[in-house]
């Protein structure tokens, strides 16, 4: 899968019409919002244009130039938000962050791609959509949410056999030996690094729940969860050990 923003020019008919959708993959149009300007990164707004939201992606097409348009898959949208704070941006807008495949800024500039019009859209990480009617923002936000939820991360085939949810035997072994080294599920109490107290600030004394590779973990059930919690909250840890031990007697 290719992440990031792309140029988009496939339109129905000859005029500045609607975008051609990927009917084979059951892409359907969810919403059309005329009168929307688009801002890519820190560039100046482009307008006027029309926003098309489908079940798969967000497309913005210029009303003036048929060959001008952009699209981004919902899979590439890390977050979207309603921005009404004039300090954040002068016009109320939908703000979106785009996940890209581009290597972090280290790449030498000056791509020699031919479709590159001084702007390498695949590296754009921020997009703002400014409807001429700010009252549409909440509706647009809700549609974005709805469509984002239609596009969960594709399940990657993993051959890893280390699937703790279903390997209860393995888990019991791990518990019996006082916490198997290979158990991906572990609750660690690490007094050397109590995250909640690193600053001494009260508001920082909070529990931190880490779920590394959260999403893939959920799907593949191979998530490693690490809870770092104040020691005192694990008073029943001993009890648990006793239970385990007595269970083996």
């Amino acid at each position: 899968m290719v992440l990031g923003l792309r140029f988009f020019t496939e339109r129905v008919g000859d005029a500045a019409g609607e975008p051609v959708l990927d009917a084979e993959n059951e892409e359907e149009l969810m919403h059309v919002q005329p009168g929307v300007a688009i801002v890519l990164g820190n560039r100046t707004p482009e307008s006027p244009g029309t926003l098309y939201i489908s079940t798969k992606r967000v497309m913005w097409l210029s009303d003036m130039v048929r060959e001008r348009g952009y699209s981004v898959d919902f899979l590439s949208l890390s977050l979207h938000a309603v921005s009404r704070d004039p300090e954040a941006y002068p016009s109320p807008c939908i703000y979106a962050q785009i996940e890209t495949d581009a290597v972090e800024d280290e790449e030498s500039g000056g791509s020699d791609s031919e479709c590159d019009e001084t702007l390498d859209v695949s590296k754009v990480t921020e997009m703002r959509l400014i409807p001429s009617d700010p009252n549409q923002l909440d509706i647009l936000f809700d549609i974005f949410c709805e469509c984002a939820e239609l596009n969960p991360e594709p399940v990657e085939e993993q051959d890893e056999e280390h699937n703790w949810i279903f390997s209860t035997g393995q888990m019991e072994d791990g518990m019996g030996t006082g916490g198997g080294e290979d158990s991906e599920w572990h609750i660690s109490e690490n007094p050397a690094n109590p995250i909640g107290y690193s600053n001494g600030g009260h508001d920082l004394a909070r529990t931190m729940l880490e779920y590394a590779e959260l999403f893939s973990g959920l799907l593949s059930s191979s998530y490693s969860l690490q809870l770092q919690i104040d020691d005192r909250r694990f008073e029943d840890a001993e009890e648990m050990e006793r239970d385990t031990r007595s269970g083996h007697q």
Binding site: L77, S78, L79, H80, A81, V82, S83, R84, D85, E87, A88, Y95, D138, F141, F144, C145, A148, E153, L214, F215, L218
Partner: peptide, 10 residues
């Protein structure tokens, strides 16, 4: 970013 509503992809 100072926003009212924000949707974050899991």
């Amino acid at each position: 970013l100072s926003v009212r509503n924000c949707f974050i992809r899991g």
